[in-house]
Design a protein around this nucleic acid. Structure first.
Lengths: 192, 192
DNA sequence: CTGTCCATGTAAGGCGTTACATGATTGT
DNA sequence: ACAATCATGTAACGCCTTACATGGACAG
């Protein structure tokens, strides 16, 4: 139900079309909840059926119709209920960890190449996060208090911190594999 | 295809039944690839159809039949190919971050309660990781080199590091919300 | 006699991905 | 002319979840 509630969240600021929603998803929550176009249209249909949003058809002479979705009172209740209710522990899935787990089926060369590839991806993500963070900080400076922008920054912080932790991990694996010292990390090295 | 390859990975050590696989998944890779029983049986059927594993039926007088799955030569090739091929960047999804992102739709009390709940879950996870890590370290001390156990420990390290990063994040959000200081983290605080 | 372990499966439904389908407007 | 942007949807497929279904052995 997360996608439906994310959509309700965006519509709670202002009415939007499916197209608008796709854009705002890509710009703001993609790093923790990617959504594609067909999903968004499907969920909008379901939300409409369930009375949580209402469709307004905007007819335009020169262009195709545009459909604006408005959140209803029931939708606002549902959104508030959901965002303030603790979630059950979530499953985590990462195929790269399966590769590491069966690392003994590879030779050093293959394994090191794999990890270097991971490293490159993590560094790219780090740079993107850093650029977004700087931009958001600049925007926040022009506001104050407990704004939507502040909460956006919080989710970015999460991305940055876990990215850093993962970078640290991949680098330490590379060091160990390249030096041939197959030791686990110490308590100190594991403590952030 | 990750689940199929994880199954091939386990079967590359020794033949197992679906039941055995479910147990070993829960004991070793659950923290990065949970699998349930019905998935495992379905993937075993597919792997058999595709000639990557072979079924051996063990008849037992007193009990129900047991089906042991053996990896085939084709299965070993496929496993090696997959584990040594870099993966495309993976999507990450976490509904708790949607809740944080729309944090302005909650009051401080609700938000703080939510984060404290998150904190409790993270602390439980940390304790479980710590217990596993200690046990694995003790086992590793009786071995040497580049063993399967070493790679298991690597994946645990990942779990511990990201758990620590997330704990740090949740604690810092609680501090800020409780003190009413809505500032982003500094560069120093974000660097691990 | 109740619960846990051993052991294997099916069915239904939800969510996500990819590809397909259509078509106008605006900028280079 | 061509690409990008605006704009809305459908279809097929795959993976994951939950629940259902069955049944013997063994321990407390």
């Amino acid at each position: 139900m997360s996608l439906q509630h994310a959509i309700l969240g965006f519509l709670s600021s202002k009415p939007m079309s499916g197209y608008d929603l796709k854009k705002i998803f890509d710009q703001s929550v993609r790093h923790f909840w990617p959504a594609n176009q067909s999903q968004i249209y499907r969920e909008l249909s379901r939300l409409t059926e369930n009375g949580l949003v209402q469709q307004e058809v905007i007819q335009r002479e020169d262009r195709l119709d545009k459909k604006l979705y408005h959140i209803t009172a029931a939708g606002r209740d549902e959104l508030h209920q959901w965002i303030s209710t603790p979630l059950p522990p979530q499953d985590y899935r990462d195929p790269a960890l399966i590769q590491v787990h069966f690392g003994s089926r590879m030779n050093d060369e293959e394994l090191i190449a794999l990890l270097k590839h991971e490293l490159t991806g993590l560094e790219e993500a780090r740079n993107q996060f850093a650029a977004m963070y700087e931009m958001y900080q600049r925007l926040l400076a022009q506001q104050q208090g407990r704004s939507d922008l502040f909460f956006s920054i919080l989710t970015l912080e999460y991305g940055i911190l876990t990215n850093q932790a993962t970078l640290k991990w991949v680098r330490s694996m590379l060091e160990r594999l390249e030096s041939g010292v197959y030791d686990p990390l110490s308590y100190d090295e594991l403590t952030i």
